[in-house]
C-alpha cells in the first residue's frame, strides 16, 4: 500500500525457467497448466514439481480457459500500477479442468457477479513477450 507511485504501469511478470512455457502459450492466447498425469489434477501456479508426486513428472496441457467464479473482492486501495483501475475486481476462478486462478475480472459490473457464474479467460498485453490472464463472463 505504502509503495504506490502515481501513474506507474502495472508490473510485468518475469518468467522463470519453470513457468516460461505458460507465458509462451499466453502470448499466443492459450492457457496451459501443469497436470499430474496420474490423477489428472491441474496445478496453478507453475512449480518445479508436480505437487501430487513431488517429482517433475507433470505434463503441460492446454485447457479451455473456462471456469466458474468462486469468490471475489472489489479492490478500492490499488496495488502499484493499478491506481487508474480502481475500483477493480479480483476473482477466484476454479478452472473446468481443475486448478484455481485469481485474476482481474473485466467486462462486467460487480452487481452482475454471482457465485458459480461461468467465466472465460481473456488476455491483457503488457509487453511484446507478456500477456496477462484476465477473466470475463462466458455468455
Amino acid at each position: 500500500m505504502a509503495d504506490e507511485k502515481p501513474n506507474q504501469p502495472p508490473p510485468i511478470p518475469s518468467p522463470s525457467p519453470v513457468s516460461q512455457p505458460m507465458w509462451d502459450a499466453a502470448k499466443e492466447g492459450k492457457l496451459v497448466l501443469q497436470v499430474d498425469p496420474g490423477s489428472g489434477k491441474a496445478q496453478f501456479w507453475p512449480r518445479p514439481v508436480n505437487v501430487q508426486t513431488g517429482k517433475a513428472d507433470y505434463e503441460w496441457r492446454e485447457v479451455s480457459g473456462k471456469g466458474t467464479l468462486s469468490a471475489w473482492t472489489k479492490v478500492h486501495v490499488p496495488a502499484p500500477g493499478f491506481a487508474d483501475r480502481v475500483p477493480y475486481i479480483l476473482g477466484s476462478v476454479d478452472l473446468t479442468e481443475g486448478g484455481r486462478v485469481v485474476a482481474q475480472l473485466v467486462n462486467i459490473e460487480d452487481d452482475a457477479l454471482t457465485p458459480g457464474m461461468a467465466v472465460k479467460v481473456s488476455w491483457e498485453k503488457r509487453s511484446e513477450d507478456i500477456s496477462v490472464y484476465q477473466f470475463e463472463p462466458d455468455d
Binding site: 508490473p11 518475469s14 522463470s16 501456479w45 496495488a79 479480483l90 496477462v132
Partner: peptide
C-alpha cells in the same frame, strides 16, 4: 512477483 503483483494483488 510473478502471479500476484501483476494481477493487482494489493
Amino acid at each position: 512477483q510473478e502471479f500476484m503483483e501483476p494481477i493487482g494483488f494489493q
